[in-house]
Design a protein around this nucleic acid. Sequence first.
DNA 1: GACCTGACTGAAAACCTTTGCAATCATCTC
DNA 2: GAGATGATTGCAAAGGTTTTCAGTCAGGTC
Lengths: 346, 346
Amino acid sequence: MAVTIHEVARAARVSVSTVSRAFGSPEVVNAETRRRVLAAAERLRYRPNRAARGLITGRTGNIGVIVPDLENPFFHGVLKGVQSRAREADQWVFLADSGEDPTIEHELVMQLSKQVDGILLCSSRMRTAQLEQAAAERPLVFLNRKVPGSPSVLMDSAGGGRQIVAHLAGLGHRSFAYLSGPRTSWSNRERRRGLRTAAAREGLEIVELGPYVPRFEAGGEAADTALERGVTAIVAYNDLMALGVLARFAERGVGVPEDCSVSGFDDAPMSTMTTPSLTTVALPKAEAGRAAVDALLGLLDNGDGSERRNDLATRLVVRASTGAPRANRRARTPRKRARMTMSDPV
Amino acid sequence: MAVTIHEVARAARVSVSTVSRAFGSPEVVNAETRRRVLAAAERLRYRPNRAARGLITGRTGNIGVIVPDLENPFFHGVLKGVQSRAREADQWVFLADSGEDPTIEHELVMQLSKQVDGILLCSSRMRTAQLEQAAAERPLVFLNRKVPGSPSVLMDSAGGGRQIVAHLAGLGHRSFAYLSGPRTSWSNRERRRGLRTAAAREGLEIVELGPYVPRFEAGGEAADTALERGVTAIVAYNDLMALGVLARFAERGVGVPEDCSVSGFDDAPMSTMTTPSLTTVALPKAEAGRAAVDALLGLLDNGDGSERRNDLATRLVVRASTGAPRANRRARTPRKRARMTMSDPV
DNA sequence: GACCTGACTGAAAACCTTTGCAATCATCTC
DNA sequence: GAGATGATTGCAAAGGTTTTCAGTCAGGTC
């Protein structure tokens, strides 16, 4: 059923070697012969079997991508970039979802190794020592993770943090809360670092809360805590949490940004869809995906195993959720919740 | 570098055939021998080369998945389901994004064919005739698309539409607007069909607007148009559009659900994150993804090329964006926008 | 004791490519 | 005109696995 190189060879009245060369090293085969071969291939709709090719060349033409959670919006942009760059380079991508489980992640890496030329590990949940070992045995590139000796593409989260602080300071804020993400997260450490250095420089007070699991629901709780601490602005670890804050504030009647400014990190698609829309640090997700594929390809071609780091710039996107604080600050009482519920004491 | 079946054979002092059998047909090899082989394989960390295996068995153990747009939240849930079912069946998934372009989609199918056992086409943008032809040459399964002669998994969008109408009718609405999606979309036709039949039964008037490109921005425009038509409820083609409606209403000071109820289709993650949260028809995305993989596997194993259809139930999720209409309806004037802008006439 | 059976194992072919090596042939060089 | 050169092509091996076929050997049957 599937047409092979042999049938093309027969149709073009040449040997299989010539067919192979007509595709792989055109300069070495006679122009007229090549034309004949290509015509035959076209007519027969020949597509080389990449598995068979890989068997001998040692290159599969495939790359593996492992993400912790396919439903996390951050990875969609990354995947989009990976995908488009991979297509340009005529590579195919194997995708797998580790379900945030380091054990599964490791197992996936093992299983995938034989089938791909290299693997891109996004926001890996594995321990660094384990990653170093895994990277020693196969080409690995990391996204949003720093692993000694391995290429990685990182986003300048710290710079994003500094931009937020500058923005808040410019608006007249004197203090803000940071809703911390997972303690083991590299991104969280970086974001905190950026916020801290800028806060110190600008003379802002920073109230650290958390760590929280970086989800929408956690934003709600965190919002309550932050309000009690009397800050005029909240910076969340990511947009999901920031959206949670927004929702809770809307529910409690806390005005954003009049009563409290809110911002996040990611520039997730939904950040534009809320009212007010969310001020956030845009991460170059697609660009990072493309850069990661480039790094992987470089690693494969040049054997360039050096610890090439690729730091991508981030950019604060100011939307409607941040503004100047009210003049009378501290110990502000939020408006009462609009509707009463049956269980309210009379 | 990579350990092959030969090294395992040597280590276990057996032939490669025996090693192969120890894995593939355990019942035929002596228990003690098998133990030895497995131990050697374990020790050497042997993983079979699936490409080489595929060369001879004709099965690659891979399936291809093509989606129109990786950033469309609908596909994330689907992908998650595909992924998990594929892992269970020890299959790997090749992922590709057609960028909504039927030509690219077709090219992807062609290129991918040799590398996978079958392909899952999600919400294909190709013409039906083209799909039928493509399906004749390789195992194809469709998600959210009906193609004569091919297995497909569909979601009961029409049923979802009926549920919405029943819900609105129960709340006392007498009319609603439907913001139509792409005219060529199967889902759109189905949703409209469901809405229509239920509306006729319940005696509701239905105002059809559009078609719109089903994005957030389109929801904004559509919202304005719908308000002018004086409806008390809006049903959007999908959540993205519904969210656009919500945002525009918030901006214009139109109360949801007091002034107008809003609902969508998809139950996208962000539907819970807005205020008010969105009433919507939940589609069994992950379940559909799993079912699609099952259908594909069935097609491969049984050669079961019959037009097996898999219709999955949908379920209305009532949240805060729908409610009873005000008694005094028709020609309601929305509250003025809160803030004035510099360009406002004085 | 000759023969058969059944359980187990190994040799080798096959899958589809790429590529090193050798062969052919025409064209140059001196 | 002999030998060298260069362009073009084909043969065959190789890559890692599965599977067919044949072989070995122990135990049973008559």
